[in-house]
């Protein structure tokens, strides 16, 4: 008798919560597939891997992964994850959230965690809109794109996320679209294996609220646009990675560098100044 094979994503999922809430053609589930394979490749034991999310559609990832997972408040996944990671240095903590959550309400936390080089892997599914609340403008909505709160087209300049992450000190910065699944698995694996603040932007469709409002077709049409308009430029300057409405998308691994982490800097400084009277933090007592 042959055993039926299991979908490789399933060992990572809380199967009692599937099917999920995401819309047809949403890219978040695709990113989760890649995440599952990256965890496998990075060979991280599940009890040493924690996922923290904020609020929103991508924020629901924490609720679907069968790991110790935390669905926190809007924009605050990173400071929660900072506490978890500093207090449990033996674990790998992944922040998985959306563009609105992480770069509007949570922007301050992102820049400081990157600056401190807290040992976190931060994955941002950037669908260019607030999906859960109905398609409002985010800091990444391209100029001229329509949103429910930009009914005449967005007139605010956007964040270039890889550029922001690099400027703030991230040690690994990559961007892919959900079309680039194999590349995404590779970059996620690298990010998970690296110490320090690693950042991956995943450009993904929100067919229900972004693509439809902007008459851009469905999810599959959007992935075809990604395929046609993406330019793979590993090592490109993040300054070139800005996005316009339906523009070319520069993708690749942009930044790989070494910087001591918050915890390493802390220990080094205290050893130097306090010598033998320094008692390193060794987890909760």
């Amino acid at each position: 008798m042959t055993t039926k094979p299991v979908n490789p994503v399933e060992p990572l999922l809380r199967m009692d919560r599937i099917p999920h809430i995401w819309c047809p053609g949403c890219g978040i589930g695709t990113s989760v597939n890649c995440f599952a394979r990256a965890i496998e490749k990075a060979d991280i034991p599940h009890d040493k891997l924690h996922v923290v999310s904020g609020i929103g559609c991508t924020g629901r990832v924490a609720g679907y992964v069968n790991l110790d997972s935390f669905h926190t408040t809007h924009g605050r996944a990173i400071p929660f994850a900072t506490g978890l990671a500093l207090a449990r240095p033996e674990a790998k903590v992944v922040v998985y959230s959306g563009d609105g959550d992480m770069f509007a309400i949570g922007g301050n936390h992102f820049i400081h965690a990157a600056r401190r080089n807290v040992d976190l892997t931060v994955i941002c599914v950037n669908n260019l809109t607030y999906g859960m609340t109905g398609g409002q403008v985010t800091p990444t909505t391209p100029l001229s794109a329509k949103a429910s709160t930009m009914p005449y087209g967005n007139f605010e300049d956007t964040f270039n996320l890889p550029n922001l992450a690099e400027a703030c000190g991230a040690v690994f910065v990559a961007r892919w679209t959900v079309f680039h699944v194999r590349q995404l698995v590779r970059s996620m694996t690298k990010a998970l294996q690296r110490k320090g603040f690693t950042f991956i932007e995943i450009i993904a469709p929100c067919p229900t609220l972004y693509q439809r409002r902007n008459k851009l077709g469905d999810g599959a049409a959007t992935l075809k646009y990604y395929k046609e308009k993406s330019i793979i430029k590993n090592g490109a300057s993040t300054a070139e990675a800005g996005l316009g409405f339906q523009s070319e998308i520069v993708v690749g691994e942009f930044v790989e560098r070494e910087r001591p982490t918050f915890t390493e800097n802390y220990a080094a400084r205290m050893k130097e100044v306090l010598g033998a009277s320094f008692v390193p933090y060794e987890g909760p007592k």
Binding site: P8, P19, H20, G27, N33, V178, R182
Partner: peptide, 16 residues
């Protein structure tokens, strides 16, 4: 090749 499995946002298909 399991690309369908990688793409499927609903965990509904995979290849072996």
């Amino acid at each position: 090749c399991d690309l369908c499995g990688l793409y499927c946002p609903d965990f509904a298909i995979f290849g072996v």
